[in-house]
């Protein structure tokens, strides 16, 4: 069983320092459950962040050097061709750059392999991979597919191993020149990001008219209401009404 983990040239979201990204490290962790030796693959101008993954359980890193701003896909395809892994794992989004999360899909398309997103657990039995996929609100879906395949990893997967200098020192890096692939589309205009207020639409908006009416007639709507010493029944009703107003409970069937 040969597993390759795709590593991006990630930056720490707060400090901006080169730092492997969490889901990629979690991918290494999942891969180590399937095979003892896990290799990583990075295509890009330098592999500083990817190299950091060696301290988190990666045994070997293949680095394909390409100029900045080039498309890593051809280099990755070539490397996958020569490494011939059974399974390619990737993080959910790269740890830097455009972070579209598109690369694993393009890779799977180019390879003709199936892709499953957001894995939290993996198991292999006789060439068949079982993937447990995380869905919103804790739901889970089980996929069974024939290898080879591409799988991306969800943040709810088991936590990554912490950094260990001893492992990092033992890790090997294989470097080779990648395939230059300048992008033909024009680069997007970039500006410093300015967080915009999240528009948290009122739960009432878009819900049924009756609920909107009720939401509007409730004292101040959801926001700092205090009921002192209500009867248990009053309290229960107030809580249920509130939970409905904020959309957490489904409307009562009887109304």
């Amino acid at each position: 069983m040969k597993t390759l983990v795709l590593l991006s040239d990630a930056r720490h979201p707060v400090s901006g320092r080169p730092a492997p990204t969490a889901t990629e490290l979690q991918a290494i962790n999942l891969a180590r459950g399937l095979a003892d030796e896990v290799s990583g693959l990075h295509a890009g101008p330098d592999a500083e962040a990817a190299r950091g993954a060696l301290g988190h359980g990666l045994a070997r890193l293949e680095h394909r050097e390409i100029p900045a701003g080039h498309d890593p896909l051809p280099s990755l395809l070539a490397a996958i061709g020569s490494e011939a892994p059974d399974l390619v794992l990737a993080g959910r989004r790269a740890g830097a750059g455009a972070q579209t999360g598109l690369l694993p899909y393009r890779l799977a398309e180019a390879l003709g392999w199936p892709i499953v997103a957001d894995a939290v657990a993996l198991a292999v039995d006789g060439g068949v991979l079982e993937v447990i996929q995380a869905l919103p609100k804790g739901a889970r879906r089980r996929w069974r597919l024939r290898l080879p395949a591409v799988v991306t990893v969800h943040p709810a997967a088991p936590a990554a191993a912490s950094f260990a200098l001893g492992t990092a020192r033992k890790g090997q890096v294989g470097a080779a020149i990648g395939i230059p692939a300048p992008l033909d589309e024009p680069a997007m205009e970039e500006r410093p990001y300015r967080p915009r207020p999240r528009l948290i639409a009122s739960a009432a908006a878009g819900a049924g008219a009756a609920e909107r009416l009720r939401a509007a007639t409730q004292a101040a709507g959801p926001g700092g209401r205090v009921m002192v010493d209500p009867s248990p029944e009053e309290a229960a009703q107030a809580i249920l009404d509130h939970l409905r107003a904020i959309g957490v409970l489904k409307p009562a069937s009887g109304r």
């Binding site: 720490h12 707060v14 400090s15 320092r17 730092a19 950091g52 912490s162 950094f163």
Partner: peptide, 8 residues
């Protein structure tokens, strides 16, 4: 530990 390392 991770944050100490990567975010100082």
């Amino acid at each position: 530990l991770s944050e100490s390392r990567y975010a100082e």
